[in-house]
Design a binder for these strands. Structure first.
Lengths: 338, 338
DNA sequence: CTCATTTCGTGCACCGTTCTACGTAAATCA
DNA sequence: TGATTTACGTAGAACGGTGCACGAAATGAG
């Protein structure tokens, strides 16, 4: 690497002078564009190496590509999201693209600001992971910048691609696993209704749950218990669900973020798992894999979703304009809670 | 290659034309620079609002500030890091700075690449959180860009500021808490030695542990059990530590990332906590707060560290050049494992 | 009323790239 | 051999801002 210190930054001109060629020639080499001989390339590459030249992203962004992609994560706590992020990186890293991450904290206004920031920063493309932004707004932004959306069902989206786990199927697998172990009284723990985000994953899982219960002839016992988001106090509500007269014998939780508190509350109440209460969660969070917790879960393979999303974005940057909507198969990770 | 849009972007010139003033005047208003009358400001602001103008970060970066700070997190899994990140955001958000995150995955070469990327992107400053980069390299980068380092003890650093939890004191609090509950045979679980990263937090905690054991006259029983990083298989080793002839009656774990597996292994082996084995961890990870896990921990207040780091960076960007080294007091969160 | 000083606004030279248009030499074709 | 085509390299105009140098107008001092 060996760079000297930074009296004057080494620019494309420095390199050109050192190699005894024109600025444009160096630019061509950098972008391995058409029309540069091996001799020239070698000369320029030697100078680049010698001087430790690195092109300015800012200057690049003014005319051409920045080779930087923006990734907007809904939050950073849920381990599913880092998994997606790693998948994205696996692909972009080999293709010479860099990543810029931002965290939207599930707040719509904040997320739109961040997207605008990414556009201002001249990102070449955008991956939105589990964003709270309404589809119409996404559609609008996607006209300004190539966009792929992960964890947001919108099969009719025109301007952007989507990559999703097959959430209905995942819910079906969870219900079937409980059914096959003899459970009939299966409830679901779902997110609280707020706005009408039908495109989110939680409603998809609910639909899968309800359809499967129906298919099994259990629709009279089907019910969705709602809990507020994790940053609200919920212990009393969970206790009520687990001890009330209508308490279920099996629960499918829309997310491990909720399955873990449920498992803990059961333990505190002396409810045995799986004898008195069977559980299946969603996301295969590392916490449910702990021996003491040991809750079955649906694995979405976030890493794979990230890879697929990144590949889709790159082809879209490459010129594809017809939208792709990719669905990925989840798998059941069976554990002691069934 | 590029997609076919559309609306010609609204630039500073568009605004100038609309407001009937010069480009320089608009620039001045944007930066609220000296020498602009209220009348002019109002006119320009109206046009900006009307046209929805947003300055190009890329273009700005070529001469002036980008109002964007780079944050390099060592990884994204350990919840302590998001906490620091949120703290940083709390202050930058109010000062009009944006954040760009990158994740170094504890890999030195990767981290240096990311830092260079941030410099290429013309970030106004850099916050490195628990970075693996040697101090000498940090020193070198800090000459190119204002830098604050979190979770890396380097009180002699000249070119950059540091913000740390007082890790020796935290270790002392953990040992004292165990001592006061009557424990004498207290071991520590530490990171495996790899390179000589004396500046990292883990050795600091070890020093605090050893000094406190010494102070209590227990230095003959003091020992540091070493475990490989979390992505390696470690169950056999943990089992060995907990069942071997030299098995301790109390363990201070350098991180909750290790305390949780220890707690689980104890459970699997039928070792009662805290009766047969007392535990204290570090970082107050949400997992140790779960009722079923319930392990005491030292809280570093990552949020506060993030706030302090961001404030330091802003004053450094503002012109301060003498280094600051800030130490923050940790607190003990007592739980059933003591 | 004149001269000095401050306040406000503008013109223009950058910043470090990309990319189009163009010139020239070498290679291919008829 | 002359006429085209192809390959290679260059000059120079963008890109969208910043900020210096400067002039005009307004204000204050004597």
């Amino acid at each position: 690497m060996a760079d000297g210190n930074s009296d004057t930054r080494v620019t494309i001109r420095t390199v050109a002078a050192d190699a005894g060629v024109s600025v444009a020639a160096v630019s061509k080499v950098m972008r391995n564009a058409y029309g540069v001989s091996d001799a020239l390339r070698l000369k320029v590459e030697a100078s680049i190496e010698k001087l430790g030249y690195r092109p300015s992203v800012a200057a690049r962004g003014m005319r051409g590509q920045t080779f930087t992609l923006g990734v907007l994560l809904v939050d950073i706590e849920n381990p599913f999201l880092p998994a997606v992020f790693h998948g994205i990186e696996e692909v972009t890293e080999t293709k010479g693209y860099k990543i810029m991450v931002a965290v939207g904290k599930a707040h719509e206004r904040r997320e739109t600001q961040l997207i605008e920031q990414m556009i201002d920063n001249r990102m070449d493309g955008l991956i939105l992971v589990a964003s709270q932004i309404p589809s119409a707004v996404m559609e609008r932004y996607s006209r300004q910048i190539p966009t792929v959306v992960v964890g947001h069902h919108e099969p009719m989206g025109l301007g952007f691609d989507t990559v999703n786990s097959d959430d209905r199927k995942g819910a079906r697998m969870a219900v079937m696993a409980l059914y096959q172990r003899g459970h009939r009284d299966i409830a679901m723990l779902g997110m609280e209704w707020d706005t009408g985000h039908q495109a989110d994953v939680s409603p998809q899982r609910e639909q899968g749950y309800l359809a499967t219960m129906d298919e099994l002839g259990l629709s009279d016992r089907a019910r969705v218990l709602r809990v507020p988001p994790t940053d609200m106090p919920r212990d009393d509500l969970l206790r009520h669900y687990l001890t009330g007269p209508d308490r279920p014998r099996a629960i499918f939780c829309w997310s491990d973020l909720d399955a873990v508190p449920v498992r803990n509350m059961a333990w505190q109440l002396g409810i045995r798992v799986p004898k008195d209460l069977a559980l299946v969660g969603y996301d295969n969070n590392p916490v449910v894999a702990l021996p003491m917790i040991n809750v079955a879960s649906i694995d979405q393979d976030g890493r794979r979703m990230g890879r697929v999303a990144a590949e889709a974005l790159l082809t879209r940057i490459g010129g594809r304009s017809v939208a792709e909507h990719i669905l990925i198969e989840p798998t059941l990770i069976a554990r002691g809670s069934l």
